[in-house]
């Protein structure tokens, strides 16, 4: 019990003094997950719009499949990417294994289904009268799409937040394709909050783990708080 209290106090000290190791890991986590979220958004939002407004055979089944992939296990994604980019894999020549790039790829793939699915939900929740109003005001196809997206902007923003939350909090893929490497340079290291917590805990550095855990929580809460603030404005 005493160890835990001491751990928490030490953790707070590490955060308040902006401990360089903790901060580097936190910043790296944010950079990697944010990049993955941005890339996933670039694909997921147009894809979600295309599926929502499109009429093609198998549309319902596709939406079902996407929803099933919401619960895609992170280690499975990690394993898949690992197999693809390991030395013997088809993309082995690119030397991506155990790099931040590999982690970004894995996280992008991990959150793509949930972001696409939530984009579809966000767009289909827009009042049909609003859609009719846009058409009756003489919108071109592009103007129509842009304005429906605009109308659903808060729900889409929440979608992005969910994607980022899932990316920054996953550990399975990060450890498989990232390898939790603490290299000399910031850019070639792959140690992020989740993998570091896992490592430090197993090594008995409880205070370090708690500090990193608090940072992770604060980031997650901060993102949600920001979204809620925007939505209520």
């Amino acid at each position: 019990m005493y160890e835990i209290v001491e751990g928490v106090l030490e953790a707070l000290r590490l955060i308040v003094t902006l401990d360089p190791d903790v901060m580097a890991i936190a910043v790296r986590s944010i950079v990697i997950s944010l990049t993955a979220t941005i890339i996933a958004s670039i694909f997921a939002i147009p894809l979600g719009a295309a599926i929502n407004f499109g009429t093609f055979p198998g549309r319902k089944s596709l939406i079902n499949l996407i929803q099933t992939l919401y619960s895609l296990p992170t280690v499975i994604v990690g394993l898949l990417i690992f197999l693809l980019i390991s030395r013997v894999g088809p993309f082995g020549f690119m030397r991506l294994l155990f790099t931040p790039t590999a982690m970004i790829i894995a996280q992008t793939i991990l959150i793509l289904p949930i972001m696409t699915g939530l984009t579809i939900s966000a767009l289909s929740a827009v009042d049909p009268v609003i859609r009719d109003t846009l058409r009756s005001l003489g919108a071109t196809r592009l103007q129509f799409l842009v304005n429906v997206l605009k109308e659903a902007r808060f729900a889409i923003l929440a979608t992005v937040a969910v994607g980022f939350g899932r990316a920054i909090s996953e550990v399975g893929a990060a450890i498989l394709v990232g390898g939790n490497i603490a290299a000399s340079s910031f850019a070639s290291s792959t140690r992020v909050l989740t993998t570091a917590i896992s490592l430090e805990t197993s090594m008995g550095n409880i205070s370090q783990s708690i500090a990193l855990g608090i940072v992770l929580l604060v980031i997650a809460l901060g993102v949600n708080l920001a979204i809620t603030t925007v939505q209520h404005r």
Partner: peptide, 13 residues
Amino acid sequence: MMGMVFQKPAVFN
């Protein structure tokens, strides 16, 4: 050439 107002009042956010 046309404008339309619908039964259910709907405004953009």
